[in-house]
Write a protein that binds this DNA or RNA. Structure first.
Lengths: 196, 196
DNA sequence: CGGTCTCTTGACGGAGTTCAAAGCTAGTGG
DNA sequence: CCACTAGCTTTGAACTCCGTCAAGAGACCG
């Protein structure tokens, strides 16, 4: 059953008894999000964090000129939410939608905090997951400050090898921080040597 | 005593008994880092996380062209380390040094993990601190993808109002992601209208 | 097939960089 | 307390990377 994917992720960091797994599953909600459907819309409150069992979600913000900037892709095995809205229960500035039909388990912040008291090991698990997310976010910040668009594209290909051929190229551009036109020129016209 | 600053930060999120405070303090090391001295050098391992009691630290990476990119400033009340190296105990690519004489409490990863078992509330505290750091890091990523250098300078002034006049301008440039020359032009020559 | 969305390509423009030089500030030593 | 040096800031001109705008060429879906 698909719940095993989530349990498998947990077992990498903590050991849960059968009873604890049972208790946890009572707090989860299974949901299918069809391609192009939304899990979270700007202005709403992120009441839940989602664990992706299959498919792929993305979170992004829309700037004042209407351009999308992708914060995170979440393929199988990843957690995704707007952490700001999730922990403060204030309105989100992000949007989360599905790039393809996607199965998720949802855990509400309310239930998460209850579980932290009932099963302290779960608080440990999420502490570790959050630490790792912070490492990734900080690394991406450094990459954006230090590297050229071309180098960032290379890193994207290494980070999300399964996605490269499965999603529109304009989404990759919105992730690495360039326009779709420029990414296209990077991949094709790439060698723009001045003619001799 | 300066330990009260740290306890005060903890009490914002959790309640510690006198015994627990005592136990915690046995695991902390107080240290003074003079201006320009290093807390962490590229190639070392970040064995500790630091809580700043007074003064200010910064963490930064050096790119292949020798340019510094500042990830974080840590004035009074902030925690700082290289989270990647701290949790993996692998070699760091970051450097942490002091912008002025700075007092810190150091907590080693080893001791932190012991404390998480002895005082689960501390794991909660660091879970919350890490969640908040993640929110800040993700927001900065969005800002770097969406905003102009001028707008990012404005945000810096709001985020670190106490630092603006206390640190060299080139450090602000290295934080917002422009050259010192360009930041200078932003502040002065600012209105570069084409002559009529 | 037709329409919409995506990808490509090119000419032009602009935000930010590079390099260089000169003025300023601040720390250091006598 | 002054002098000297080293680093910081400013300013300018040339340049680069990447964005903008526009038009055409696929690619997907009903």
């Amino acid at each position: 059953m698909s719940l095993q994917k989530l349990i498998g992720s947990l077992q990498k960091h903590i050991a849960l008894s059968a009873q604890e797994q049972e208790l946890l599953s009572d707090f989860l909600v299974f949901k299918i999000i069809k391609k192009r459907q939304f899990l979270l819309h700007e202005g709403q409150i992120a009441r839940e964090v989602a664990f992706v069992v299959s498919g792929c979600l993305r979170s992004y913000s829309i700037d004042q000129n209407g351009f999308e900037h992708i914060l995170q892709f979440a393929p199988t095995g990843w957690w995704i939410t707007d952490m700001y809205s999730f922990i403060s229960q204030q309105q989100t500035h992000l949007t989360i939608d599905a790039l393809m039909d996607t199965e998720v388990y949802l855990l509400s912040r309310e239930n998460q905090l209850i579980l932290f008291d009932k099963i302290p090991k779960l608080e440990r698990y999420f502490r570790i997951v959050t630490e790792n997310s912070l490492v990734g976010s900080r690394q991406r910040l450094i990459d954006n400050l230090s590297l050229t668009a071309s180098q960032r594209y290379g890193i994207f290909c290494n980070t999300y090898p399964t996605l490269i051929h499965d999603i529109p190229q304009k989404l990759i551009a919105a992730y690495i921080g360039v326009t779709p036109e420029f990414l296209s020129k990077l991949k094709n016209g790439g060698a723009k040597t001045k003619k001799s």
